[in-house]
């Protein structure tokens, strides 16, 4: 038996918003530690890795590991039936082929139940090592969102350069070129407004803005986002989900042909 209850449906809605444009179907892997999901986009250019630890739930029970194969669009439709303040419970039998969503209104006067058929999803699991990166940039999530959106109007690719001066985002296209520079401002009082750059050496990498714009759908999940970069390795874009998990996106850099 798997059963997990979260106090606010809003959180699960935000998680779905953060994956639904990138992933069609995915296995939600549930264990006694929590729920995780790993999936590539259909072009296999990027990867999303979600973790929601059990301590982020009001109630959590998972007797044995279970993979819930879910069509993300169907789940999104069901979750739209929940109010943001509803409590939501997910429930699945060990050998079952459905997952049940229960929404309870804050005043407990309304209870809705939706049953969704599970799918058999054959997905390869990739081992993602935790590694030190050459440079990291922590910045307000809304700032990163704005930069990706603005530079998309100029070109398809952004060059991210980290130097002692700060981090520079540059896009160029037929109509011209745009450059946005952020300087380290770790002295700002409000932590969520800080731009914090760590760097072992200067680097410059290029990424497809199309995918970065998909990643910024997670903006509502966190105040800050962290970009981690190492030459010739995938960029990691991480949004922390409170203190109980994260959504991480990995994007292979564009390399000179």
């Amino acid at each position: 038996m798997f059963e997990a209850r979260m106090a606010q449906a809003a959180l699960l809605k935000k998680v779905l918003e953060a994956v639904k444009d990138l992933v069609t179907d995915a296995n939600w892997d549930c264990t006694s530690a929590g729920i995780s999901l790993q999936a590539m986009d259909s072009s296999h250019v990027s990867l999303v890795s979600l973790l929601m630890r059990k301590d982020g739930f009001d109630m959590y029970r998972c007797d044995r590991p279970i993979s819930l194969g879910i069509n993300i669009a169907s789940m999104t439709k069901i979750m739209k039936c929940a109010n943001n303040n509803d409590a939501v419970t997910l429930r699945a039998e060990d050998e079952g082929d459905t997952v049940v969503f229960t929404f309870e209104s804050a005043d407990q006067e309304k209870v809705s139940e939706f049953e969704m058929k599970l799918m058999d999803i054959d997905s390869e699991h990739l081992g993602i090592p935790e590694r030190e990166h050459t440079a990291t940039v922590k910045m307000p999530a809304s700032e990163f969102h704005g930069i990706c959106r603005d530079l998309s109007t100029i070109g398809e690719t952004v060059q991210v350069s980290v130097t002692k001066e700060g981090v520079q985002f540059t896009a160029s296209g037929d109509t011209g070129k745009g450059t946005i520079t952020l300087r380290n401002n770790s002295s700002v009082d409000e932590e969520s407004q800080q731009v914090v750059i760590t760097m072992q050496e200067e680097l410059s990498l290029s990424f497809a803005l199309r995918y970065l714009n998909f990643f910024t759908k997670a903006t509502a999940l966190a105040d800050s986002v962290t970009l981690s970069m190492t030459a010739d390795l995938p960029l990691v874009v991480e949004y922390r989900i409170e203190d109980t998990g994260y959504i991480r996106y990995f994007l292979a850099p564009k390399i000179d042909d």
Binding site: M40, V45, S46, H125, L126, P234, F250, A252, I255, D257
Partner: peptide, 14 residues
């Protein structure tokens, strides 16, 4: 000209 590589190239299958 720049080339976009696949993400799976960077991680080993489990």
């Amino acid at each position: 000209k720049q080339k976009q590589s696949s993400i799976s190239r960077f991680f080993a299958r489990k």
